[in-house]
Nucleic acid binder design. Structure first.
Lengths: 361, 361
DNA sequence: AACGGCGATGTTACCGGTAATATCAAGGAG
DNA sequence: CTCCTTGATATTACCGGTAACATCGCCGTT
């Protein structure tokens, strides 16, 4: 109440100093614009630089000065203006996230994990979604992100178009595509229960020798990765992939793949994700084939619904939370110039449910 | 090549003028920092203000001046710095989005639609996710968003905690919770095929009179909205809700609800979303009840997988894309101070599949 | 007692834009 | 022919911070 913008006494004049005048801010709080460090400095009777130093955590401030600043900060409900800070420091504490298919399980799970990891590190994610996966739309989205002054760029959909855009464009900031590692790392002590080898061994131990592979779209690196892992694991265990059909991750594509097939030729279907497995199981039912009596079916991801499919789906649980988090941490460490963490393979774990059973004779 | 930061001749001095000196930028392009309007102005031999005016689309610029500016802009690959612009204008072109359960279908679908609508209007979404829905975590997230200088705030999860946080906090910017409208609007011409009344009429016409209601968590406004719509529609058609069990949207909760039930007492189960319906159907199967032979089951949302459940699920397709888009448009119109659109009810459409059939005698 | 060093604080410049004001040349009126 | 007006452009101030440098008072030294 006593404080005014225009000095009316010698004391006030000395306190305020010849600092840049603020035109507004009558009372200490209210509907006026948020307080700046200049307002705080004036209220505390110090220079704005002292306030800035305090906020930065600078030690060498006398206790009484410190107390005045703290008091003023609290009185004025000061909140730093990140825009102004980022203009001088170049640090915006923002990461651009690029994604399409955000309503699909994988990308949205990754996004959630990435966002949580970013928040914990004091960053927010600027998200830009793509309607289509074509190069033009990716380029345009990247331009949009770039204008918004992000410190790093994270892509949550790892397709060939995305990869090529990332290789072609000079971002001036660290950029990263969150993806499953191309070469799965073997965790020696858990080899038998981890990942695709475990899945294949499970099928093999049930007597299956012939596999129909429902693959993901080949321009996705995750799809290629899964296909490669399956090929390598089946080769090792002596199983045969009698047929590979490429879907688009959707249940509809899994359904269509099985529906149009003249002959199944296999006792097990290994799908690159749970949704396609779901579609496949429905189509099998409509052909009069029972799961797992006639055909065993497996998925990948372990989406929450998979445990309630009919029958509940045997699948590989992917640690997408972990990979989203790791991707952001890796990106932030590149931003900060600190040492990168070791890139870790996505952890996966075999979840056996009722969709797999002994191979029919 | 000929241009240098330090004037070495009268000509250069006149061209550059007594403007703030730039220390860097030797060649016109390369690994140096991005060009500013001052660089462009120097290259074009005009003042930075002329460049600014050009960028703003100001008309009164002489054609030859305009040409010089355009040339310089292209040569230097100028990209505006949104941070600097937003510091003076107060327009950041950012909307803060607050959400949890982003890996669930509803929120992620809303987010995708919101992001697309924002992008089309030149905004990006700053997303902050919540681990938990409690008030403290919401408050903290909102503080984080506020620092990041957004022009509006959009919540994508409409729970009581969110609502109360929104009422308690003064954001200084428009804030909006994306939610289904509390009072469904009736589209007269389509009354019979739209929304909950259509769903109930469908069950009624199949001879069902008793309904078990699998409700969503009551702190979600969408859950309350759906429950209310069901109550009103059943009352109108003379059906009885014999029991209401509250789940948490997950298939697991739908499964558990039916699993522990001593007696079903109803010929139809109306679930507040598709996932709980999925869980319920599995539990029904395990009790030896067939769908739809013994019990009919319906969901809400029409998630992409619902058409491939076993059996495929009769459900209400919700236009979440539309509501996400509308929420952002509404928010942006409030930001711009323009007239708000009419709030529209979420459009929903009855999708009849095989999970509903004639009531058993 | 004069002085150098140093810790605490104040002053100025700068980030990259936009807004407001100033300048300047050309054209029209008196 | 001079003055005023006006359109085009230049200059300056400002947004809210941070960084670099300047200042000032107090201390111990010789």
């Amino acid at each position: 109440m006593a404080e005014q913008a225009i000095p009316t006494s010698g004391t006030a004049e000395r306190d305020a100093g010849p600092i840049r005048a603020r035109k507004h801010r009558g009372a200490t709080s209210g509907a006026s614009r948020p307080a700046t460090i200049y307002d705080v400095a004036a209220a505390a009777g110090v220079s704005h630089q002292t306030v800035s130093r305090y906020l930065k955590g600078f030690e060498g401030i006398r206790p009484e000065t410190r107390a005045k600043v703290e008091r003023a900060l609290a009185d004025l409900e000061y909140r730093p203006n990140l825009t102004a800070r980022s203009l001088t420091t170049g640090r915006s504490r923002r990461i651009g996230a690029l994604t399409h298919d955000i309503d699909k399980y994988g990308p949205s799970k990754l996004l959630g994990a990435a966002s949580a990891a970013a928040r914990d590190a004091g960053y927010v994610l600027d998200i830009v979604t793509l309607d289509t996966g074509d190069t033009a739309s990716i380029t345009q989205a990247l331009a949009m992100i770039a204008e918004h002054d992000v410190e790093g760029i994270l892509a949550l959909s790892s397709t060939d178009e995305m990869t090529s855009a990332f290789e072609r464009i000079d971002f001036r900031v660290p950029a990263l595509i969150a993806t499953e590692l191309d070469e799965p790392v073997r965790v020696e002590s858990q080899l038998a229960t981890v990942g695709m080898p475990a899945l294949v061994r499970h099928l093999s131990s049930l007597g299956h020798r012939t596999i129909l592979h429902l693959a993901g779209p080949s321009q996705w690196s995750a799809a290629r990765n899964r296909t490669r892992a399956l090929a390598s694991a089946t080769a090792e265990d002596g199983l045969t992939i009698v047929r590979t059909i490429e879907g688009d991750w959707s249940a509809a594509s899994g359904y269509a793949a099985i529906k149009v097939l003249a002959d199944l030729d296999a006792t097990a279907i290994v799908s690159a994700n749970d949704q396609m497995a779901l579609g496949a199981m429905l189509a099998l039912g409509e052909r009069g084939l029972s799961v797992p009596g006639d055909v065993s079916v497996t998925g990948i991801d372990d989406i929450p619904d998979a445990a309630f499919f009919c029958p509940p789906l045997t699948t590989l649980r992917m640690d997408l939370n972990g990979s989203g988090r790791d991707a952001v941490r890796e990106l932030i460490s590149r931003i900060d110039g600190s040492e990168a963490h070791d890139p870790r393979a996505v952890q996966s774990e075999l979840i056996v449910r009722r969709s797999t059973g002994p191979a029919p004779r």
